[in-house]
Amino acid sequence: MAPSTNCLDHIIYLTPPGSVTETAEEFRQLGFNVLAGGQHEDGLTENSLVILGDGVYLELISFVKPLEAYPHGSPERSARENHRWAAKAPGWIDYAFLRYSSETVRIPDIINDRAVAGGDEVLYGDGTAGGRTRIDGQILKWIVTFPRLSAEGRRPPIPFFCEDVTPRDLRVPSLDTEHPCSVQGIAFLHLRVPLEKLDELARSFDYIIGRSSIHYEWQLSTDKSIAGHSCRLLLSVSDTKVLEISEVAFYVKDKPPADTIQTTYGKIRFVVL
């Protein structure tokens, strides 16, 4: 049996350089438990984590330093300038699915074969090694596979894939999943794109996730299920030229003071179980 290609792993929330501590405190004030993460092995970014009961986590991430902190012409400045998130505005910027592979099967190959069979270009390139060191010194290793750049030199807003080399429970510890705000897991991830990109992107999601029976809506799986409730990816038309994650919705047990809140850089919606 072919491995699942629709398992949501984590969602990334970017804030300005050096702001991880402040962002972690903001999410704590919203009722989320936040774990210290660590610095990525390239030394450019650092993070904190919010682990949810469904096994998905939020990665609260920022660059360690602003671009101007690196000398002109230095390798460090070049790496900072060319980082895949260097041009991203703060907010919900990216998301990852779990990647699996064996000696004979790799998820990117499955998806690329579907795209070619559908008359389109392949969606994913080769995987690259990544990792970070936790604040307790534990070294984490993984392989990430990113979408291929478009003709305009941009990455389409489809998920990248992450496969653990070290055990996943080191990267995603099942700690502090009982949050004061009673959040249980992800209800949906909502993307908005310009009208002229809508059908092209929908076709890509069909290749990645599988063809949906509901227009512009796809069912996702998670590492741990929430009985009777599904995780979804929603796609709708934006009134701007920006391709963006417009909001992330969470299942909660208790009715919150407000169904929708605006963080400093993003939108959150709560759905009562």
Results as ranks from 00 to 15, higher is better:
residue 105 V to T: 15
residue 105 V to K: 01
residue 145 T to G: 03
residue 227 A to D: 11
residue 50 V to P: 00
residue 205 F to V: 00
residue 165 V to N: 00
residue 196 E to K: 15
residue 195 L to R: 14
residue 100 Y to T: 08
residue 76 E to Y: 03
residue 178 E to C: 10
residue 62 S to N: 08
residue 177 T to F: 08
residue 260 T to S: 09
residue 164 D to K: 04
residue 266 G to L: 06
residue 106 R to D: 11
residue 86 A to H: 06
residue 68 E to Y: 12
residue 34 V to W: 01
residue 146 F to L: 12
residue 38 G to Q: 10
residue 142 W to S: 10
residue 212 S to F: 00
residue 149 L to C: 06
residue 197 K to Y: 08
residue 19 S to P: 01
residue 20 V to G: 06
residue 244 E to S: 01
residue 167 P to Y: 07
residue 183 V to N: 06
residue 266 G to Q: 00
residue 39 Q to L: 14
residue 32 F to N: 04
residue 104 T to S: 14
residue 125 G to C: 13
residue 167 P to C: 01
residue 14 L to Y: 07
residue 270 F to H: 09
residue 225 S to F: 07
residue 243 L to P: 09
residue 85 W to Q: 06
residue 202 A to D: 07
residue 125 G to I: 10
residue 250 F to A: 04
residue 177 T to C: 14
residue 111 I to N: 06
residue 132 R to M: 01
residue 258 A to C: 14
residue 245 I to G: 01
residue 116 V to C: 02
residue 149 L to G: 03
residue 101 S to W: 05
residue 49 L to T: 09
residue 136 D to P: 09
residue 94 D to V: 15
residue 99 R to K: 13
residue 151 A to S: 11
residue 206 D to N: 10
residue 133 T to V: 13
residue 258 A to P: 01
residue 11 I to A: 05
residue 257 P to V: 09
residue 191 L to R: 07
residue 157 P to W: 01
residue 196 E to N: 15
residue 94 D to F: 15
residue 20 V to R: 02
residue 200 E to L: 13
residue 247 E to K: 10
residue 132 R to W: 03
residue 137 G to F: 00
residue 159 P to G: 11
residue 145 T to F: 00
residue 70 Y to I: 02
residue 180 P to I: 01
residue 31 G to A: 12
residue 95 Y to F: 15
residue 230 S to V: 09
residue 138 Q to H: 00
residue 43 G to T: 11
residue 67 L to W: 11
residue 43 G to E: 12
residue 273 L to N: 15
residue 39 Q to F: 08
residue 95 Y to R: 02
residue 16 P to C: 09
residue 62 S to R: 06
residue 229 H to M: 13
residue 220 L to C: 08
residue 256 P to F: 07
residue 19 S to R: 15
residue 192 R to W: 00
residue 20 V to N: 09
residue 206 D to R: 04
residue 227 A to C: 10
residue 34 V to L: 09
residue 120 D to H: 12
residue 112 N to G: 06
residue 3 P to K: 00
residue 181 C to W: 08
residue 105 V to L: 11
residue 269 R to V: 10
residue 244 E to G: 02
residue 154 R to D: 13
residue 256 P to Y: 04
residue 254 D to A: 15
residue 264 T to A: 12
residue 233 L to N: 05
residue 117 A to N: 09
